[in-house]
């Protein structure tokens, strides 16, 4: 029963979801400044919203907030996401022992990131929510407020567009 669901404190949300919200934002914007701004904004809204949150689909609620915060942020900043990967970020991607591994990994993720940023928003969002965040189709549908069938189609078409972009590049 949903009523058994414990409502998390916002600190718990920050601990459990901060990193994944940040990664969601980063993959959507390709930019660490924007990702930081967005993650902060989401937590402010979560903090405000938790007072009135009633047990239900917490994931759906959280990702709806995240998505709306992102769209508001984009409107507010009135600027297109940049494909530039800041220099400092390359060190954040260093997870491999040899420089060659690092280069291969970075290059691959750069290409994928660039391809993601060229996807129309609704496809990018569906693919990132599915493959980066790990939401189910139903959770994505709840967050984006569209039918599950639409989510399925967006994810598939999004992936095919990414394939075409990666092959062309």
């Amino acid at each position: 029963m949903a009523s058994n669901e414990a409502i998390p404190t916002w600190e718990q949300v920050a601990t459990d979801y901060g990193r994944v919200i940040y990664n969601f934002a980063y993959r959507l914007t390709g930019n660490r400044d924007d990702a930081s701004d967005l993650a902060q904004e989401v937590l402010v809204r979560v903090r405000r919203g938790l007072a009135t949150y009633r047990p239900g689909s917490f994931e759906g609620w959280l990702w709806r907030i995240t998505r709306n915060a992102f769209l508001d942020e984009v409107r507010r900043k009135q600027r297109r996401p940049t494909t530039e990967l800041p220099a400092e970020d390359r060190s954040a991607l260093v997870t491999s022992p040899t420089p060659d591994d690092v280069l291969a990994e970075t290059r691959l993720s750069d290409e994928m990131q660039a391809a993601l940023l060229n996807l129309p928003y609704e496809f990018r969002e569906a693919v990132v929510m599915c493959d980066v965040v790990g939401l189910t189709y139903q959770e994505i549908a709840d967050a984006a407020e569209v039918p599950v069938g639409t989510v399925r189609s967006r994810i598939h078409r999004g992936r095919l567009m990414l394939r075409d972009a990666l092959e062309a590049g």
């Binding site: 600190e11 920050a14 601990t15 459990d16 979801y17 901060g18 990193r19 994944v20 940040y22 990664n23 980063y26 993959r27 660490r32 990702a35 930081s36 993650a39 902060q40 937590l43 402010v44 903090r47 970020d89 954040a92 991607l93 997870t95 990994e105 993720s109 994928m112 990131q113 693919v127 493959d131 980066v132 992936r159 990414l162």
Partner: peptide
């Protein structure tokens, strides 16, 4: 997509919101 590296949250990101416990893994 699923093997894209996880990007670490920049230090201090949530300090403006309030004092929070250090971020651990999601």
């Amino acid at each position: 997509l699923r093997s894209l590296p996880v990007v670490e949250v920049r230090a201090g990101t949530f300090e403006d919101v309030a004092e929070v416990v250090p971020l651990r893994r999601a």
